[in-house]
């Protein structure tokens, strides 16, 4: 590198900003930046802290898995032990037997859950992102008021707004339909806030060039903004999945045919001591599905390459 000369100056004597520019434009080869500024001592310290904490954090997962595999006598053992001694799968077969004689076919509950959760996630991610885009990237009258309303709304205790919300849902006549669960879920404040925060740092030049090429605002939103904030909407999907999945809908849904799986599973486990095994299996399933969804989304949260070198 020391040999490299630009004009009469050695490369190192150039001002740093110019050095950077030359490296970016690949006039001068980039340094190999594989592992930047990492000391062994620092690595060891940080990973040690992580390891100790990880043991505590993973505890509930360990317990749920072990409980699901425990036979009844071990579930009721006192003092309770975390690790299972004689693992078996009877809890699950018990659960499946119980599922077979529910009021309506179990597949119906499952279908309801899929509809409610799916619509809740898709609806919220799409309309919240759609609203977040102008709030992040455009100027228009009323922008600040709308945005602060969203942020403030998250700070009002959900417990007391529930009753007025119930009144509104009844007044709209959507009580006892899927919409009673889906529509309020689409209006959460958090999703819009999250999406707006991720869209804000996108460079304006990215959208400007698309606009010059005749792309409409819709086109910009779908083809440029959304792909660039993929980590954000995948994360939002995880949050939304968790909140939709846990919803038993018992407040709004009266018809047994409309109730989600959570409700049916809770009914099964409410059967007292004899069903403790099935209950442990239910706890496992209730945790396993969001975890599967989490792993699916989280592993796709990868860096968005398009913005590299576009920052202005």
């Amino acid at each position: 590198m020391a040999e490299k000369r630009i004009g009469q100056m050695r490369f190192e004597e150039l001002p740093p900003s110019l050095q950077k520019k030359l490296r970016r434009q690949k006039i001068v080869p980039r340094l190999k930046p594989k592992k930047l500024n990492r000391s062994v001592a620092g690595n060891t310290l940080l990973f040690f802290i992580m390891g100790v904490c990880a043991v505590f954090m993973v505890l509930p997962l360990v317990m749920i898995v072990n409980n699901a595999l425990k036979p009844l006598d071990e579930l009721y053992q006192y003092p309770p032990k975390i690790w299972v001694r004689n693992p078996h799968l009877e809890n699950f077969s018990d659960l499946f037997t119980l599922m077979n004689d529910t009021w309506v076919p179990f597949s119906r509950y499952l279908m309801n859950t899929i509809i409610i959760t799916g619509a809740g996630i898709l609806g919220h991610v799409i309309i919240a992102s759609l609203a977040a885009y102008p709030l992040a990237k455009h100027k228009f009258p009323g922008k600040n008021i709308l945005f602060s309303m969203v942020v403030l709304s998250m700070m009002f205790s959900w417990t007391v707004t529930q009753i007025p919300q119930y009144a509104i849902i009844s007044w709209m006549g959507i009580n006892n339909t899927y919409l009673a669960l889906i529509l309020p879920a689409c209006a959460y404040g958090m999703g819009l806030y999250l999406m707006k925060q991720f869209m804000e740092p996108l460079p304006d030049s990215l959208m400007e060039s698309a606009r010059i090429e005749g792309c409409s605002e819709w086109g910009i939103f779908w083809k440029i903004v959304m792909p660039n904030v993929k980590p954000a909407w995948l994360t939002l999907a995880i949050f939304q999945f968790q909140s939709m999945w846990g919803n038993t809908g018992s407040l709004f849904l009266r018809d047994e045919q409309l109730k989600p799986m959570q409700f049916a599973l809770q009914q099964i486990t409410a059967g007292g001591a004899a069903r403790a095994g099935a209950a442990a299996a239910v706890t496992f399933i209730i945790a396993a599905v969001p975890i599967a969804f989490f792993l699916m989304c989280q592993s796709s949260v990868l860096e968005t390459m398009t913005t590299s070198g576009m920052k202005d």
Binding site: I127, L130, A131, S153, T161, L192, S216
Partner: peptide, 26 residues
């Protein structure tokens, strides 16, 4: 800013009914 408002509308209509109104009522 018509295009902006069109994009805001679906969210904020729901937001008004299911979040703002309940908070004000509370």
């Amino acid at each position: 800013s018509r295009a902006c408002y069109a994009m805001l509308a679906p969210y904020f209509i729901l937001f008004f009914f299911f979040t703002v109104l309940p908070v004000l009522m509370s």
